[in-house]
């Protein structure tokens, strides 16, 4: 007798836990005619809960040392490397060829490593010491913006997810991500990777469901500071931009069609989700030329 396979229950990921959607609803995306599973159809309340989790995690994550964030990101890559087979399997379930699946998983791991390296370097790239004409020391440094709503790309469900999440959190932001609607399997499995990678709960929150239902809440929530939209639905983009006005969210829209190209390995994705802070302090000039003693 052949053994009966255990099917996986795909749940969402909020605050380091794997709840079912509070709505109790599901949807069944298909590869062709093959159903991929019963996936949580997340509600606006799930999103709300995720934002609370993300906000709660912000101080700790943004306050961690850059070295620490760098190691945590590296750890994600390590965990992913160990579970390559599972991700390839899921990508194939979602319609990829084996070759494409392998390429996507490898590229995803490498991209995480790439951004892990930026955590303790981008600050030096974007900072400045400003030579003001008064007796002050003045410097500008980037700080994470806060909580970010992320619309992961619909295609390339693994590397798309990684290319949007990782640069956002590298600087200390926390995020709520809506996974690819039709190819959500990798996103949830990736949540399991995160959960075992020293990423504090709430830093990355992953929802499954439809953009149609969630985009307005992701754009309008007053405790979300920035928004990362991928895709090219003009109507949706306009709507999102308008909804984002109310608390002046920073809106970044990218059409992720060239996901493998080197341009996605870039600190400028980190720069999109930081705020520049400039600090002034007097310099006592005693004993110096032109001293005012």
């Amino acid at each position: 007798m052949s053994r009966l396979e255990i099917l996986k229950t795909y749940k969402i990921y909020i605050g380091g836990k794997f709840p079912r959607t509070e709505s109790g609803r599901f949807y069944t995306p298909k590869n062709g005619t093959t159903p991929l599973g019963n996936i949580c159809l997340s509600s606006r309340k799930d999103f709300r809960n995720a934002v609370v989790a993300a906000r709660g995690a912000f101080d700790g994550w943004s306050g961690a040392t850059a070295y620490n964030r760098s190691q945590v990101l590296y750890r994600i890559a390590e965990m992913l490397e160990g579970r390559k087979a599972q991700f390839m399997d899921e990508l194939m379930q979602q319609g990829s060829t084996k070759g494409a699946a392998e390429k996507e998983v490898h590229a995803s791991i490498d991209r995480i490593i790439y951004y892990a390296g930026w955590c303790d370097k981008y600050t030096q790239l974007f900072s400045a010491v400003n030579p003001v004409a008064t007796s002050h020391f003045n410097f500008t440094v980037p700080e994470p913006t806060g909580v970010v709503s992320v619309f992961a790309p619909e295609e390339n469900s693994l590397i798309g997810l990684i290319s949007t999440i990782i640069p956002v959190i590298a600087s200390g932001n926390t995020c709520v991500v809506l996974a690819s609607e039709n190819k959500p399997l990798c996103a949830i499995t990736f949540a399991e990777v995160i959960n075992s990678s020293d990423v504090p709960g709430g830093v990355i929150n992953i929802l499954t469901g439809t953009r149609k239902e969630l985009h307005s809440h992701m754009a309008s929530h007053m405790d979300v500071n920035a928004l990362f939209y991928t895709g090219n639905d003009k109507k949706e983009i306009l709507e999102i931009k308008k909804l984002a006005v109310d608390n002046l969210k920073r809106v970044v829209v990218k059409d992720f069609v060239t996901i493998y190209s080197a341009e996605h390995d870039s600190p400028y994705y980190i720069e999109d989700f930081v705020e520049m802070k400039t600090t002034w302090h007097p310099i006592e000039k005693i004993g110096a030329a032109g001293s005012g003693y």
Binding site: P282, I283, K285, Y293
Partner: peptide, 10 residues
């Protein structure tokens, strides 16, 4: 005493 502040005041 903050020297820069003093100079500003003066």
């Amino acid at each position: 005493v903050d020297q820069v502040g003093i100079i500003d005041r003066i």
